[in-house]
Design a binder for these strands. Sequence first.
DNA 1: GCTAATATTTCGGTGTGCCGAAATTCGCGG
DNA 2: CCGCGAATTTCGGCACACCGAAATATTAGC
Lengths: 198, 198
Amino acid sequence: MTGPVVEDYVKVIYAHTEWQAEPITSTALAARLGLAASSVTEMVKKLSTQGLVSHEPYGAIELTRDGTALALRMVRRHRLIETWLVQHFAYSWDEVHDEAEILEHALSDRLLDAIDDELGRPARDPHGDPIPSRDGSIVRPDAVLLADAPAGGRVVRISDRNPALLRELESRGVVLDAIVRPGDLGAEALASIWVATA
Amino acid sequence: MTGPVVEDYVKVIYAHTEWQAEPITSTALAARLGLAASSVTEMVKKLSTQGLVSHEPYGAIELTRDGTALALRMVRRHRLIETWLVQHFAYSWDEVHDEAEILEHALSDRLLDAIDDELGRPARDPHGDPIPSRDGSIVRPDAVLLADAPAGGRVVRISDRNPALLRELESRGVVLDAIVRPGDLGAEALASIWVATA
DNA sequence: GCTAATATTTCGGTGTGCCGAAATTCGCGG
DNA sequence: CCGCGAATTTCGGCACACCGAAATATTAGC
């Protein structure tokens, strides 16, 4: 009943609050989806009717329990697929996103679970993002942006927004679990890398 | 530009002439796609405009060169995916179809080729259907329906139309390359199994 | 507290692919 | 070669997800 479009909306709404707090606005949602604001307003109204989202006119957009469950389902799919492409097919870090974006809507639960088993039920994806379990639970490592960690620390996550930056970082040895200090890197990197707290 | 819908139309049109001769009618095409005849008439007109199909009103529907190329591309995808599901994920013979039907529209060429390599570039799928090569060439084994082969022979292909029959046949040892005689089997099986000629 | 800039929604409209009903054309039996 | 049933097309309409422009609500600056 829900279809790829609903899945994408819900996933983006979820993603916005995963590492930062504020709920997403309809303008930001439109920007991330590459759609006109008016389209988003209409669709959000439908999602609200379906009980996936709570939203009063001119207010913020937040996921309901059902919406969060669907979002976690999609996040699980996306991250498992990315992990699988990297580990099994030697995709590089920065190439997996587009393929995963499509496949996450297409694989059956059965195939996805088979892939999960084959990978040994990984807890995080190649970017360090936690992979929700089959029952929808997710454990997010305590972490802060490198920009906010003067002493640096162990890399726990690297945002996948900028593929060029990903390649650059990889070539300099900045990968998951590496130890970095803020002084070693540029401004954009500081805002893309999370390190473990304490 | 072509999208999953066009891909499905073209694939079904192609499939109809793969093992039998006559070009498909719009009624038969509608039946196979599960659509109303009027929908098919309209869509075929669009395919014709796009140069994928040749069709004058009230006439038969045939693929153009471009249409055949697209169909072979989809057939390759479908059959490679089926083969992969069976070999790599232990799907059974009769379970692969629906999953492949969806994935064939979703995998990138890159991923598909990686799977092809991993499988060792197989020449036929689990049903015995030949898999077109990357350049679109296809070699169909010489075969006749078991119903038309009084002496029987080596099984070269088993139609995937009826999953229950597939399971039944498998349990009785009727698989690819088995030797069968018409007397051993029922009417529907005789019309679903091809054996090598001479 | 008012107004100007900005965010959001409303509104009319589009393209795609589908439907059923009605009209048309085909092709077979006589 | 004529008519009748079956196949096919035409037609008006619908659902979905999108758009830009116009209207409206919010918010921030003063």
